[in-house]
């Protein structure tokens, strides 16, 4: 409040002297201020790492909790062909979300591919590769359970399609695009499961008698003289 000032008093007060804090005090305070900011900055990387970790965990949990697609149920390969042996191959072959509505979800989880392919990845698929890559992606535990159920129901499904569930699976199977089916057959071939691949190929030709298999894919799905996996 400037109106409270008295020039005479101010002048006399100023005349009392111009004391200053000693330089060593200045240095000590400024050093403490800098130390404080250094300590603070040291936390930044840790905080950033923790935040990234929390986000990563949250995303993983979210993905895990997502209801599985109907896709895992829709596979062209008949579980009845070799039901006991299929468990090993199941993750690769049965991720077959061929039904059109399931594709976006499968593509979204494409980053889970490593669990799908512990072995060396096959050669890039032929022309319709976009359709092939997406369904080949993730599969959840629930999907596994559903597949196991299907495996048990397979004989009836093959013979009569009597059971309602089997009928539903069969309907989905019919919707599997040929290129996906061929990719799976090629996969069986890669794994050296020629017998199954042969059967599947026969079924494929029965189902799609007019389908012209591209040359590149034909090499993969048809039995070659010395079984050399395409890698």
């Amino acid at each position: 409040m400037a109106d409270e000032r008295d020039p005479q008093i101010s002048q006399r007060y100023r005349a009392l002297g111009g004391e200053e804090p000693p330089p060593e005090l200045d240095r000590a305070i400024l050093a403490a201020a800098r130390r404080a900011t250094t300590r603070r900055n040291r936390w930044y990387p840790s905080l950033a790492a923790a935040a990234v970790l929390v986000f990563a965990v949250a995303i993983v949990v979210q993905v895990e909790r997502q209801p599985p697609d109907q896709a895992p149920m829709s596979e062209p390969s008949p579980p009845a062909v070799a039901a006991p042996a299929q468990d090993k191959v199941a993750p690769q072959e049965r991720k077959a979300p061929a039904a059109a509505p399931a594709k976006p979800a499968a593509g979204r989880r494409a980053e889970q591919a490593p669990q799908f392919a512990p072995e060396p990845a096959p050669a890039p698929p032929p022309a319709p590769s976009a359709n092939v890559a997406a369904p080949a992606a993730g599969v959840g535990a629930e999907g596994e359970r559903k597949r196991a159920d299907e495996t048990r129901a397979a004989p009836q499904l093959q013979r009569s399609m009597g059971a309602q569930r089997s009928a539903a699976s069969a309907a989905l199977r019919d919707e599997v695009p040929p290129d996906e089916w061929l990719t799976r057959i090629a996969r069986l071939r890669e794994l050296g499961r020629d017998e199954e691949a042969d059967k599947e190929l026969a079924r494929f030709r029965e189902r799609y008698p007019d389908y012209r298999i591209p040359e590149v894919m034909a090499k993969k799905v048809e039995k070659q003289a010395p079984a050399a996996p395409a890698r």
Binding site: G18, E19, E20, P21, A33, T37, R40, N41
Partner: peptide, 18 residues
């Protein structure tokens, strides 16, 4: 975390506060 800002602030007020 800008330590330089404190230096300026301190320089402005050190004498009067002292």
């Amino acid at each position: 975390g800008n330590a330089g800002a404190f230096d300026t602030l301190y320089a402005r007020h050190r004498t009067r506060l002292y």
